[in-house]
Nucleic acid binder design. Structure first.
Lengths: 213, 213
DNA sequence: AAAAGTAGAACGAATGTTCATTTCTGTCAA
DNA sequence: TTGACAGAAATGAACATTCGTTCTACTTTT
Protein backbone atom coordinates (compact mmCIF):
# COMPACT_ATOMS: atom_id res chain seq x y z
CA UNK A 1 0.00 0.00 0.00
CA UNK A 2 2.42 2.62 -1.14
CA UNK A 3 1.92 6.30 -1.85
CA UNK A 4 -0.41 6.75 1.09
CA UNK A 5 1.60 8.82 3.46
CA UNK A 6 2.12 11.68 1.04
CA UNK A 7 0.09 14.11 3.05
CA UNK A 8 2.96 16.61 3.17
CA UNK A 9 5.08 16.08 0.06
CA UNK A 10 8.36 17.94 0.08
CA UNK A 11 7.86 21.15 -1.85
CA UNK A 12 11.46 21.26 -3.11
CA UNK A 13 12.03 19.89 -6.59
CA UNK A 14 13.57 16.47 -6.78
CA UNK A 15 16.94 17.44 -8.16
CA UNK A 16 17.46 19.97 -5.39
CA UNK A 17 16.69 17.41 -2.76
CA UNK A 18 19.07 14.97 -4.38
CA UNK A 19 21.87 17.52 -4.63
CA UNK A 20 21.60 18.84 -1.14
CA UNK A 21 21.45 15.36 0.35
CA UNK A 22 24.46 14.38 -1.72
CA UNK A 23 26.40 17.46 -0.63
CA UNK A 24 25.85 16.66 3.02
CA UNK A 25 26.79 13.03 2.60
CA UNK A 26 29.80 13.63 0.39
CA UNK A 27 31.20 16.16 2.81
CA UNK A 28 30.50 14.05 5.85
CA UNK A 29 31.86 10.74 4.60
CA UNK A 30 33.65 11.44 1.34
CA UNK A 31 32.44 10.58 -2.13
CA UNK A 32 33.64 7.00 -2.13
CA UNK A 33 32.10 6.20 1.22
CA UNK A 34 28.64 7.21 0.07
CA UNK A 35 26.48 4.87 -1.96
CA UNK A 36 23.67 5.84 -4.26
CA UNK A 37 21.42 4.04 -1.84
CA UNK A 38 22.61 6.38 0.90
CA UNK A 39 21.68 9.35 -1.24
CA UNK A 40 18.34 7.70 -1.90
CA UNK A 41 17.68 7.26 1.78
CA UNK A 42 18.75 10.76 2.73
CA UNK A 43 16.96 12.55 -0.09
CA UNK A 44 13.83 10.39 -0.01
CA UNK A 45 13.97 10.26 -3.78
CA UNK A 46 13.82 6.91 -5.52
CA UNK A 47 16.88 5.34 -7.05
CA UNK A 48 15.29 5.47 -10.49
CA UNK A 49 14.74 9.20 -10.30
CA UNK A 50 18.29 9.76 -9.21
CA UNK A 51 19.50 7.94 -12.30
CA UNK A 52 16.96 9.71 -14.47
CA UNK A 53 18.15 13.11 -13.30
CA UNK A 54 21.88 12.67 -12.99
CA UNK A 55 22.74 9.42 -14.72
CA UNK A 56 24.53 8.00 -11.73
CA UNK A 57 26.71 8.74 -8.77
CA UNK A 58 29.41 10.54 -10.69
CA UNK A 59 26.73 12.57 -12.44
CA UNK A 60 25.51 13.81 -9.07
CA UNK A 61 28.99 14.85 -8.05
CA UNK A 62 29.58 16.59 -11.35
CA UNK A 63 26.27 18.47 -11.28
CA UNK A 64 26.97 19.53 -7.72
CA UNK A 65 30.44 20.67 -8.67
CA UNK A 66 29.29 22.85 -11.52
CA UNK A 67 26.37 24.17 -9.57
CA UNK A 68 28.63 25.36 -6.78
CA UNK A 69 31.27 26.56 -9.20
CA UNK A 70 28.57 28.77 -10.59
CA UNK A 71 27.88 30.19 -7.16
CA UNK A 72 31.56 30.99 -6.85
CA UNK A 73 31.55 32.74 -10.19
CA UNK A 74 28.62 34.84 -9.12
CA UNK A 75 30.47 35.72 -5.96
CA UNK A 76 33.39 36.90 -8.07
CA UNK A 77 31.13 38.88 -10.38
CA UNK A 78 29.63 40.57 -7.38
CA UNK A 79 33.09 41.55 -6.16
CA UNK A 80 34.05 42.81 -9.60
CA UNK A 81 31.00 45.02 -9.76
CA UNK A 82 31.82 46.86 -6.57
CA UNK A 83 33.85 50.02 -6.83
CA UNK A 84 37.04 48.78 -5.22
CA UNK A 85 40.76 48.89 -5.77
CA UNK A 86 42.36 45.60 -6.67
CA UNK A 87 43.82 45.28 -3.21
CA UNK A 88 40.43 45.81 -1.68
CA UNK A 89 39.01 43.25 -4.06
CA UNK A 90 41.47 40.67 -2.75
CA UNK A 91 40.46 41.51 0.79
CA UNK A 92 36.79 41.29 -0.10
CA UNK A 93 37.24 37.83 -1.61
CA UNK A 94 39.01 36.60 1.51
CA UNK A 95 36.27 38.07 3.69
CA UNK A 96 33.60 36.33 1.63
CA UNK A 97 35.42 33.00 1.71
CA UNK A 98 35.75 33.28 5.48
CA UNK A 99 32.06 34.07 5.85
CA UNK A 100 31.08 31.18 3.64
CA UNK A 101 33.32 28.84 5.62
CA UNK A 102 31.52 29.75 8.80
CA UNK A 103 27.97 29.95 7.49
CA UNK A 104 27.85 27.53 4.56
CA UNK A 105 30.59 25.21 5.56
CA UNK A 106 29.68 22.27 3.34
CA UNK A 107 29.92 24.30 0.17
CA UNK A 108 33.43 25.41 0.97
CA UNK A 109 34.38 21.95 2.10
CA UNK A 110 33.17 20.38 -1.13
CA UNK A 111 34.80 22.97 -3.35
CA UNK A 112 38.05 23.77 -1.58
CA UNK A 113 38.76 20.71 0.48
CA UNK A 114 37.80 17.71 -1.62
CA UNK A 115 39.99 15.90 -4.10
CA UNK A 116 37.82 16.15 -7.17
CA UNK A 117 40.26 14.31 -9.32
CA UNK A 118 39.57 11.13 -7.42
CA UNK A 119 35.92 11.04 -8.40
CA UNK A 120 35.74 13.41 -11.37
CA UNK A 121 38.88 12.35 -13.21
CA UNK A 122 38.00 14.20 -16.38
CA UNK A 123 37.29 17.59 -14.86
CA UNK A 124 40.04 20.20 -14.73
CA UNK A 125 41.38 20.95 -11.24
CA UNK A 126 39.49 23.67 -9.45
CA UNK A 127 42.48 25.98 -9.33
CA UNK A 128 42.26 26.27 -13.10
CA UNK A 129 38.58 27.21 -12.99
CA UNK A 130 37.24 30.66 -13.78
CA UNK A 131 36.90 31.93 -10.22
CA UNK A 132 40.52 31.18 -9.48
CA UNK A 133 41.57 32.72 -12.76
CA UNK A 134 39.66 35.83 -11.79
CA UNK A 135 41.47 35.92 -8.47
CA UNK A 136 44.82 35.70 -10.21
CA UNK A 137 43.87 38.32 -12.75
CA UNK A 138 42.88 40.70 -9.97
CA UNK A 139 46.32 40.23 -8.49
CA UNK A 140 47.88 40.82 -11.90
CA UNK A 141 45.91 44.02 -12.39
CA UNK A 142 46.93 45.12 -8.92
CA UNK A 143 50.57 44.65 -9.87
CA UNK A 144 50.11 46.49 -13.14
CA UNK A 145 48.44 49.37 -11.31
CA UNK A 146 51.19 49.58 -8.71
CA UNK A 147 48.88 48.63 -5.86
CA UNK A 148 50.59 45.31 -5.26
CA UNK A 149 54.28 44.68 -5.30
CA UNK A 150 55.26 43.24 -8.68
CA UNK A 151 56.75 39.80 -9.11
CA UNK A 152 56.11 36.29 -10.28
CA UNK A 153 52.31 36.12 -10.58
CA UNK A 154 52.10 32.67 -9.04
CA UNK A 155 54.18 33.68 -6.06
CA UNK A 156 52.30 36.89 -5.46
CA UNK A 157 48.87 35.30 -5.88
CA UNK A 158 49.85 32.46 -3.56
CA UNK A 159 51.05 34.93 -0.97
CA UNK A 160 47.85 36.93 -1.22
CA UNK A 161 45.44 34.02 -0.92
CA UNK A 162 47.60 31.22 0.48
CA UNK A 163 47.33 32.26 4.10
CA UNK A 164 43.56 32.54 3.88
CA UNK A 165 43.15 29.21 2.15
CA UNK A 166 45.45 27.62 4.69
CA UNK A 167 43.33 28.94 7.51
CA UNK A 168 40.20 27.63 5.83
CA UNK A 169 41.76 24.18 5.68
CA UNK A 170 42.79 24.33 9.31
CA UNK A 171 39.32 25.42 10.28
CA UNK A 172 37.62 22.71 8.24
CA UNK A 173 39.95 20.08 9.66
CA UNK A 174 38.83 21.08 13.10
CA UNK A 175 42.23 22.04 14.45
CA UNK A 176 41.35 25.74 14.62
CA UNK A 177 38.55 26.58 16.97
CA UNK A 178 38.24 30.29 16.47
CA UNK A 179 35.84 31.47 13.74
CA UNK A 180 37.73 32.72 10.73
CA UNK A 181 35.79 35.94 10.56
CA UNK A 182 37.44 37.00 13.81
CA UNK A 183 40.88 36.60 12.30
CA UNK A 184 40.21 38.50 9.10
CA UNK A 185 41.68 41.86 10.04
CA UNK A 186 44.87 40.45 11.40
CA UNK A 187 45.41 38.17 8.43
CA UNK A 188 44.96 41.04 6.00
CA UNK A 189 47.46 43.06 7.96
CA UNK A 190 50.04 40.27 8.07
CA UNK A 191 49.66 39.55 4.40
CA UNK A 192 50.09 43.08 3.11
CA UNK A 193 52.65 44.34 5.59
CA UNK A 194 54.67 41.17 6.04
CA UNK A 195 55.80 39.36 9.13
CA UNK A 196 59.15 40.97 9.76
CA UNK A 197 59.52 42.82 12.99
CA UNK A 198 61.70 45.42 11.40
CA UNK A 199 64.41 45.02 13.98
CA UNK A 200 67.50 43.09 12.99
CA UNK A 201 67.28 39.40 13.70
CA UNK A 202 69.99 38.21 16.02
CA UNK A 203 71.26 34.71 15.42
CA UNK A 204 70.31 32.52 18.34
CA UNK A 205 71.20 29.10 19.53
CA UNK A 206 68.21 26.91 18.77
CA UNK A 207 66.29 25.81 21.83
CA UNK A 208 64.52 22.56 22.43
CA UNK A 209 61.15 22.66 20.77
CA UNK A 210 58.24 22.39 23.05
CA UNK A 211 55.39 20.75 21.26
CA UNK A 212 52.09 21.78 22.67
CA UNK A 213 49.49 19.05 22.96
CA UNK B 1 55.58 -23.71 -14.19
CA UNK B 2 55.96 -20.94 -11.69
CA UNK B 3 59.05 -19.71 -9.89
CA UNK B 4 61.17 -19.92 -12.99
CA UNK B 5 61.71 -16.35 -13.90
CA UNK B 6 63.24 -15.47 -10.60
CA UNK B 7 66.71 -15.06 -12.01
CA UNK B 8 66.89 -11.55 -10.59
CA UNK B 9 64.68 -11.53 -7.53
CA UNK B 10 64.04 -8.09 -6.19
CA UNK B 11 66.53 -7.49 -3.43
CA UNK B 12 64.19 -5.12 -1.60
CA UNK B 13 62.30 -6.59 1.32
CA UNK B 14 58.69 -7.42 0.71
CA UNK B 15 57.09 -4.73 2.82
CA UNK B 16 59.10 -2.04 1.05
CA UNK B 17 57.99 -3.27 -2.32
CA UNK B 18 54.39 -3.33 -1.17
CA UNK B 19 54.56 0.15 0.29
CA UNK B 20 56.27 1.77 -2.64
CA UNK B 21 53.90 0.16 -5.12
CA UNK B 22 50.99 1.29 -3.01
CA UNK B 23 52.33 4.82 -2.78
CA UNK B 24 52.60 5.07 -6.56
CA UNK B 25 49.15 3.65 -7.13
CA UNK B 26 47.43 5.64 -4.38
CA UNK B 27 48.90 8.88 -5.67
CA UNK B 28 48.15 8.10 -9.29
CA UNK B 29 44.56 6.92 -8.91
CA UNK B 30 43.53 7.69 -5.35
CA UNK B 31 43.09 5.20 -2.56
CA UNK B 32 39.57 4.16 -3.46
CA UNK B 33 40.38 3.55 -7.09
CA UNK B 34 43.12 1.07 -6.22
CA UNK B 35 42.33 -2.54 -5.36
CA UNK B 36 44.48 -4.89 -3.35
CA UNK B 37 44.84 -6.88 -6.53
CA UNK B 38 46.33 -3.82 -8.18
CA UNK B 39 48.89 -3.55 -5.42
CA UNK B 40 49.59 -7.25 -5.81
CA UNK B 41 50.22 -6.85 -9.53
CA UNK B 42 52.36 -3.76 -9.18
CA UNK B 43 54.46 -4.99 -6.28
CA UNK B 44 54.78 -8.58 -7.50
CA UNK B 45 54.06 -9.73 -3.97
CA UNK B 46 51.36 -12.29 -3.36
CA UNK B 47 48.01 -11.39 -1.88
CA UNK B 48 48.70 -13.64 1.06
CA UNK B 49 51.89 -11.80 1.96
CA UNK B 50 50.20 -8.45 1.64
CA UNK B 51 47.59 -9.52 4.16
CA UNK B 52 50.25 -11.13 6.34
CA UNK B 53 52.23 -7.91 6.49
CA UNK B 54 49.61 -5.20 6.63
CA UNK B 55 46.33 -6.92 7.35
CA UNK B 56 44.52 -5.33 4.46
CA UNK B 57 44.19 -2.32 2.27
CA UNK B 58 43.65 0.17 5.02
CA UNK B 59 46.61 -1.30 6.86
CA UNK B 60 48.81 -0.51 3.89
CA UNK B 61 47.62 3.08 3.78
CA UNK B 62 48.12 3.48 7.50
CA UNK B 63 51.61 2.01 7.50
CA UNK B 64 52.53 4.23 4.59
CA UNK B 65 51.15 7.24 6.37
CA UNK B 66 53.11 6.68 9.54
CA UNK B 67 56.23 5.75 7.65
CA UNK B 68 56.17 9.03 5.76
CA UNK B 69 55.12 10.99 8.81
CA UNK B 70 58.29 9.67 10.36
CA UNK B 71 60.34 10.99 7.47
CA UNK B 72 58.75 14.37 8.02
CA UNK B 73 59.61 14.28 11.68
CA UNK B 74 63.19 13.49 10.85
CA UNK B 75 63.24 16.40 8.45
CA UNK B 76 62.04 18.64 11.26
CA UNK B 77 64.61 17.26 13.67
CA UNK B 78 67.30 17.95 11.15
CA UNK B 79 66.15 21.55 10.84
CA UNK B 80 66.01 21.92 14.61
CA UNK B 81 69.58 20.71 14.95
CA UNK B 82 70.98 23.34 12.64
CA UNK B 83 72.18 26.59 14.17
CA UNK B 84 69.50 28.87 12.80
CA UNK B 85 67.24 31.66 13.93
CA UNK B 86 63.55 30.83 14.02
CA UNK B 87 62.97 32.85 10.89
CA UNK B 88 65.68 30.96 9.09
CA UNK B 89 64.18 27.73 10.31
CA UNK B 90 60.88 28.63 8.68
CA UNK B 91 62.69 29.40 5.46
CA UNK B 92 64.60 26.15 5.66
CA UNK B 93 61.41 24.13 6.08
CA UNK B 94 59.86 25.80 3.05
CA UNK B 95 63.00 25.14 1.03
CA UNK B 96 62.97 21.48 2.01
CA UNK B 97 59.28 21.10 1.20
CA UNK B 98 59.88 22.67 -2.20
CA UNK B 99 62.79 20.34 -2.90
CA UNK B 100 60.79 17.31 -1.86
CA UNK B 101 57.92 18.39 -4.07
CA UNK B 102 60.21 18.47 -7.08
CA UNK B 103 62.32 15.40 -6.35
CA UNK B 104 60.06 13.10 -4.35
CA UNK B 105 56.73 14.25 -5.58
CA UNK B 106 54.68 11.24 -4.52
CA UNK B 107 55.63 11.57 -0.90
CA UNK B 108 54.45 15.16 -0.77
CA UNK B 109 51.36 14.33 -2.73
CA UNK B 110 50.40 11.53 -0.38
CA UNK B 111 51.08 13.54 2.75
CA UNK B 112 49.99 17.05 1.85
CA UNK B 113 47.50 16.56 -0.93
CA UNK B 114 45.45 13.49 -0.03
CA UNK B 115 42.33 13.47 2.09
CA UNK B 116 43.37 10.96 4.72
CA UNK B 117 40.11 11.19 6.55
CA UNK B 118 38.38 9.49 3.65
CA UNK B 119 40.37 6.31 4.00
CA UNK B 120 41.88 6.55 7.49
CA UNK B 121 38.86 7.84 9.36
CA UNK B 122 40.33 7.21 12.78
CA UNK B 123 43.63 9.00 12.29
CA UNK B 124 43.97 12.61 13.40
CA UNK B 125 44.28 15.13 10.57
CA UNK B 126 47.82 15.70 9.42
CA UNK B 127 47.82 19.35 10.48
CA UNK B 128 47.60 18.17 14.06
CA UNK B 129 50.58 15.85 13.68
CA UNK B 130 53.96 16.44 15.29
CA UNK B 131 55.72 17.99 12.27
CA UNK B 132 53.03 20.61 11.92
CA UNK B 133 53.09 21.26 15.64
CA UNK B 134 56.82 21.78 15.39
CA UNK B 135 56.31 24.27 12.57
CA UNK B 136 53.82 26.22 14.66
CA UNK B 137 56.05 26.11 17.70
CA UNK B 138 58.93 27.52 15.69
CA UNK B 139 56.70 30.40 14.68
CA UNK B 140 55.68 30.88 18.30
CA UNK B 141 59.29 30.95 19.43
CA UNK B 142 60.06 33.41 16.67
CA UNK B 143 57.34 35.69 17.98
CA UNK B 144 58.55 35.34 21.55
CA UNK B 145 62.07 36.17 20.45
CA UNK B 146 60.98 39.23 18.52
CA UNK B 147 62.08 37.80 15.18
CA UNK B 148 58.54 37.50 13.88
CA UNK B 149 55.79 40.02 14.31
CA UNK B 150 53.56 38.95 17.17
CA UNK B 151 49.92 38.09 16.75
CA UNK B 152 47.40 35.30 16.67
CA UNK B 153 49.54 32.17 16.31
CA UNK B 154 47.22 30.59 13.76
CA UNK B 155 47.19 33.67 11.61
CA UNK B 156 50.93 34.15 11.74
CA UNK B 157 51.71 30.49 11.11
CA UNK B 158 49.27 30.41 8.22
CA UNK B 159 50.86 33.49 6.73
CA UNK B 160 54.33 32.00 7.08
CA UNK B 161 53.58 28.63 5.52
CA UNK B 162 50.30 29.23 3.69
CA UNK B 163 51.84 30.68 0.57
CA UNK B 164 54.32 27.84 0.28
CA UNK B 165 51.69 25.17 0.82
CA UNK B 166 49.44 26.88 -1.69
CA UNK B 167 52.20 26.82 -4.28
CA UNK B 168 52.83 23.15 -3.59
CA UNK B 169 49.17 22.41 -4.26
CA UNK B 170 49.22 24.43 -7.46
CA UNK B 171 52.34 22.61 -8.56
CA UNK B 172 50.94 19.17 -7.77
CA UNK B 173 47.70 19.99 -9.54
CA UNK B 174 49.70 20.72 -12.64
CA UNK B 175 48.57 24.30 -13.08
CA UNK B 176 52.01 25.70 -12.23
CA UNK B 177 54.74 24.70 -14.61
CA UNK B 178 57.74 26.36 -13.05
CA UNK B 179 59.69 24.29 -10.51
CA UNK B 180 59.05 25.53 -7.00
CA UNK B 181 62.72 25.73 -6.16
CA UNK B 182 63.04 28.60 -8.62
CA UNK B 183 60.40 30.58 -6.78
CA UNK B 184 61.77 30.12 -3.30
CA UNK B 185 63.66 33.39 -2.92
CA UNK B 186 60.81 35.51 -4.14
CA UNK B 187 58.26 33.77 -1.96
CA UNK B 188 60.40 34.25 1.13
CA UNK B 189 60.76 37.92 0.30
CA UNK B 190 57.02 38.41 -0.26
CA UNK B 191 56.13 36.59 2.88
CA UNK B 192 58.41 38.46 5.25
CA UNK B 193 58.22 41.90 3.73
CA UNK B 194 54.58 41.88 2.63
CA UNK B 195 52.98 42.72 -0.65
CA UNK B 196 52.28 46.41 -0.22
CA UNK B 197 54.04 48.71 -2.63
CA UNK B 198 54.45 51.32 0.04
CA UNK B 199 52.91 54.01 -2.08
CA UNK B 200 49.37 55.03 -1.24
CA UNK B 201 46.76 53.04 -3.08
CA UNK B 202 44.55 55.24 -5.21
CA UNK B 203 40.97 54.12 -5.52
CA UNK B 204 40.34 53.12 -9.10
CA UNK B 205 37.32 52.34 -11.16
CA UNK B 206 37.28 48.58 -11.64
CA UNK B 207 38.13 47.40 -15.11
CA UNK B 208 36.75 44.44 -16.97
CA UNK B 209 38.57 41.31 -15.93
CA UNK B 210 40.48 39.59 -18.62
CA UNK B 211 40.64 35.92 -17.89
CA UNK B 212 43.64 34.30 -19.46
CA UNK B 213 43.03 30.85 -20.97
C1' DA C 1 61.07 -29.27 9.90
C1' DA C 2 59.58 -24.72 10.50
C1' DA C 3 58.84 -20.35 8.62
C1' DA C 4 57.95 -17.40 4.94
C1' DG C 5 56.32 -16.73 0.48
C1' DT C 6 53.32 -17.81 -3.67
C1' DA C 7 49.34 -18.77 -6.51
C1' DG C 8 44.88 -18.28 -7.26
C1' DA C 9 40.19 -20.05 -6.47
C1' DA C 10 36.31 -18.93 -3.79
C1' DC C 11 33.22 -16.15 -0.96
C1' DG C 12 30.21 -12.69 0.70
C1' DA C 13 28.95 -8.18 1.29
C1' DA C 14 28.50 -3.86 -0.81
C1' DT C 15 27.18 -1.09 -4.52
C1' DG C 16 26.30 0.94 -9.20
C1' DT C 17 22.84 0.29 -12.51
C1' DT C 18 18.68 -1.41 -15.05
C1' DC C 19 13.94 -1.84 -16.11
C1' DA C 20 9.17 -3.38 -15.61
C1' DT C 21 5.67 -1.27 -13.16
C1' DT C 22 3.04 2.37 -10.87
C1' DT C 23 1.59 7.06 -10.23
C1' DC C 24 1.02 11.73 -11.69
C1' DT C 25 -0.49 15.36 -14.90
C1' DG C 26 -2.44 17.66 -18.50
C1' DT C 27 -5.53 17.24 -22.62
C1' DC C 28 -9.58 16.55 -24.95
C1' DA C 29 -13.88 14.44 -26.36
C1' DA C 30 -18.44 13.55 -24.62
C1' DT D 1 -18.06 18.07 -15.09
C1' DT D 2 -16.57 13.70 -16.23
C1' DG D 3 -13.75 10.12 -17.82
C1' DA D 4 -10.52 8.20 -20.92
C1' DC D 5 -5.90 8.32 -22.08
C1' DA D 6 -1.10 9.32 -23.43
C1' DG D 7 3.16 10.59 -22.03
C1' DA D 8 6.19 11.97 -18.39
C1' DA D 9 7.82 11.20 -13.85
C1' DA D 10 8.79 8.33 -10.20
C1' DT D 11 9.37 3.93 -7.98
C1' DG D 12 12.02 0.04 -6.01
C1' DA D 13 13.00 -4.90 -6.49
C1' DA D 14 16.32 -7.35 -8.87
C1' DC D 15 20.65 -7.84 -11.23
C1' DA D 16 25.57 -7.94 -12.28
C1' DT D 17 29.84 -6.71 -10.93
C1' DT D 18 33.53 -5.35 -8.14
C1' DC D 19 36.50 -5.93 -4.45
C1' DG D 20 38.29 -6.90 0.19
C1' DT D 21 39.29 -10.90 2.37
C1' DT D 22 39.99 -15.88 3.42
C1' DC D 23 41.71 -20.27 2.55
C1' DT D 24 44.15 -24.18 0.73
C1' DA D 25 47.75 -26.36 -1.65
C1' DC D 26 52.30 -25.74 -3.07
C1' DT D 27 57.32 -23.92 -3.15
C1' DT D 28 61.39 -21.82 -1.32
C1' DT D 29 64.44 -20.55 2.29
C1' DT D 30 66.78 -21.16 6.62
Amino acid sequence: MPYLNKAAPSPEPLDCRILSAALDLFVERGFHNVSVHDVQRESQVSIGSIYKHFGGKEGIAKALYYHLLNEFEEMMNQVMEEDLSNRERCNRIIALLFEYTESRRNIIEYMLHAKHREFLPNEPPICSSTPFKVMRSIVQQGMDAGEIRSGNPWVVASTVFGGAIRMIHLRLDGVMEQPLTECYDELIDCMWRGLSTGEAVKRKRPQAVEVAG
